[in-house]
Amino acid sequence: MLNKNTQNYIANFITYTILIISSMAVILPFVWMIFSSFKTAGEIWTFPPVFMPKKFQWSNYIDAWNALPFDRFLFNSIFVTVCVTVGQLFTCSFGGYAFARLRFPGRDKLFLMYLATMMIPFPVLMIPLFIIMQSLGWTDTLKSLIVPCLFSAWGTFLMRQFMMGIPRALEDAAKIDGCNYWQLYWKIIVPQCKPVFATLGIFTFMGTWNNFFWPLIMINTIGKKTLPLGLVMFQTRIAAETPWHLIMAASCATVLPILILFVIGQKYYVKGVVTSGLKG
């Protein structure tokens, strides 16, 4: 019979081994990307694949950065992502508040209808949405990437569910003290909703940052492209001609700011995911 310490030791060993292996599976593609960014075009295609480049090609970074305006792509991505994230936090919390707290005719039916929009796949909405953007004269503008994404049925649902759990007594007390609807929202509800704001913020940020399909349709000029669009600009029709080493270099360089942001905000990210009970 093993003593308690040994049992703990074995259990920890197994747990950590599984965790390390799982982490490796997640980290390996990133490490692969970093090493590939220093390879030559020929080394990328070598089979069996080699992990380390024969000679580190630092010039890949310079070549990639000089070939396309990645600083502009980065700025556009940050601008769009921040606008959409902040905007969605406002609209979804407003919507969530209305659906959770205000009483008006047809509220629940309206909410169900709003929720039902989540069931419509994006390709179905794409052409009508494109025509709307076109009729507003917004094609090839960053507005077209921001405005349609400011509203989210999923975000509203998340907010509503969270707000329904806030005790009504808090609002009643504020009403007695003379708060109007805006003050109720801003001074009572919002401070209670920090965890769900963090969750929605994180998921919206990630979704918008990685959004490829809608910007692909809407954006035509190079100066308005976002990072995901910029990265594929190296791809050619004939796979062998695609400079993957430069794509890797550009990916590494552009992933850095978001990685730093993640490291800084890691605490909030984990907290947000745990609070909402959602898995990332």
Binding site: L216, V232, M233
Partner: peptide, 16 residues
């Protein structure tokens, strides 16, 4: 000029 769209993506964007 709208270039640098990979072939597969081009054939998604053009019909739209």
């Amino acid at each position: 000029l709208d270039w640098g769209i990979s072939f597969a993506n081009y054939n998604t964007k053009l019909p739209v």
